[in-house]
């Protein structure tokens, strides 16, 4: 492990290259520009392909092609660009291709602004494009965690043949922190891809497709997806708990807000308030079970988000009336200070 001071966007790019990234396709957008620029500089030097596409639509379809050809591939963007990629992501999901998509979320809807926001939670965790599909969604709250989760995103995506999304925001993308970068991956560790289109030499032809005109056939394809999703839900739920042992109020927050909420927990504890934090790391699969078990023990589960309450829906599905489930959200790129969140906390405890 090498420890360096890096900007989030660059740490993600470097971690991706060290994870065996072969082809990266992109279209410029703020606030993830440093990732694009880092890739343009570094990836070709290290045997990879960097290509700036004519659009997000083209970029994700290039990812589809490279993934079909059996290499580790990735694209990155921010909210409006991710909306454009949804068509391609749906095809990738049904064709069961592994790839990594990074969304450095910004304020929306529409053009919005470039400030940190979490308004793409529904889009990321509920499908986003057309059809019944899911992405593995990983939400880092620090730069080092972002680097770590990039590696995990590639590994899980390969393991399950499900596209993985790293969901962060401009705050994480642009801040600098000391990072322990992962060691370069051993190419032999990257799972083989017998389904890839590599030329039908000495084997029957491979077809990568999301299409079956026959309802029974398409149902089969869907059932395979659903079975895979159930397996991921069983095996890959990840979350972090802070001071939950004796908590009477549980904050639920992810990403940038999860990080701020850690400070809130410390400040609350200093005041003697029994506050804990539950921070989902996988937004899909959402940690319903562990949250449900904690909800049994606390009186209040307070969700804090940079959205109008998108994750809050999942929190309420997890809690199912076992505790009060108030909500505090900010919109438009406004990021609440720890003190502001603490004010919310005080409404329910102490």
């Amino acid at each position: 492990m090498s420890r360096v001071l890096m900007r989030g966007n660059e740490a993600i790019a470097e971690a991706a290259i060290r994870s065996g990234l072969k082809c990266y396709f992109c279209y410029p957008i703020t606030p993830q520009g440093e990732m694009v620029e880092y890739m343009a500089r570094e990836l070709p030097k290290r045997g990879g392909v960097f290509l700036q596409a004519e659009s997000e639509v083209a970029a994700i379809n290039m990812v589809y092609g490279a993934a079909a050809a059996g290499v580790r591939t990735m694209t990155s963007s921010s909210s409006p660009g991710i909306s454009l990629k949804q068509e391609g992501i749906s095809y990738i999901a049904m064709a069961r291709l592994p790839c990594v998509i990074v969304n450095m979320m910004r304020g929306g809807p529409g053009l919005g602004n470039i400030a940190p926001a979490q308004g793409d939670y529904f889009q990321a965790t509920k499908g986003g494009g057309h059809g019944d599909y899911r992405l593995i969604v990983l939400a880092p709250s620090t730069v080092p965690e972002a680097a770590e989760l990039v590696r995990l995103a590639f590994d899980l995506s390969d393991k399950y043949r499900v596209p993985a999304m790293l969901l962060a925001d401009g705050m994480i993308g642009q801040m600098m922190e000391p990072v322990e970068l992962p060691e370069p991956v051993d190419p032999d560790r990257i799972p083989p891809r017998p389904w890839a289109v590599t030329g039908a030499r000495g084997r029957p032809k491979n077809v990568v497709s999301s299409f079956d005109l026959e309802p029974e056939g398409l149902r089969e394809m869907n059932l395979v997806l659903q079975e895979t999703y159930r397996e991921i839900e069983r095996n890959e739920v990840r979350w972090e708990e802070v001071e939950t042992g004796d908590a009477e109020l549980l904050l639920v927050a992810y990403g940038t807000v999860g990080r701020i909420a850690k400070t809130v927990v410390r400040l609350a504890r200093e005041e003697g308030l029994p506050v804990g934090l539950f921070r989902p790391i996988t937004l899909w699969p959402f940690p319903y079970e562990p949250l449900r078990m904690l909800a049994e023990k606390v009186g209040t589960v307070l969700t804090v988000e940079l959205s109008a309450g998108q994750m809050w829906e999942d929190v309420r599905l997890a809690v199912e009336g076992r505790a009060e489930t108030p909500f505090y959200g900010e919109l438009g790129g406004v990021v609440p200070s720890p003190k502001r969140i603490l004010e919310e906390v005080r409404k329910y405890v102490g």
């Binding site: 072969k22 082809c23 396709f25 392909v49 290509l51 596409a53 639509v57 083209a58 970029a59 379809n61 290039m62 990812v63 589809y64 092609g65 490279a66 993934a67 079909a68 050809a69 059996g70 290499v71 591939t73 289109v197």
Partner: peptide, 9 residues
């Protein structure tokens, strides 16, 4: 675009 991805890979 898909062809580009395959050919570049």
């Amino acid at each position: 675009a898909v062809a580009t991805g395959i050919k570049r890979a």
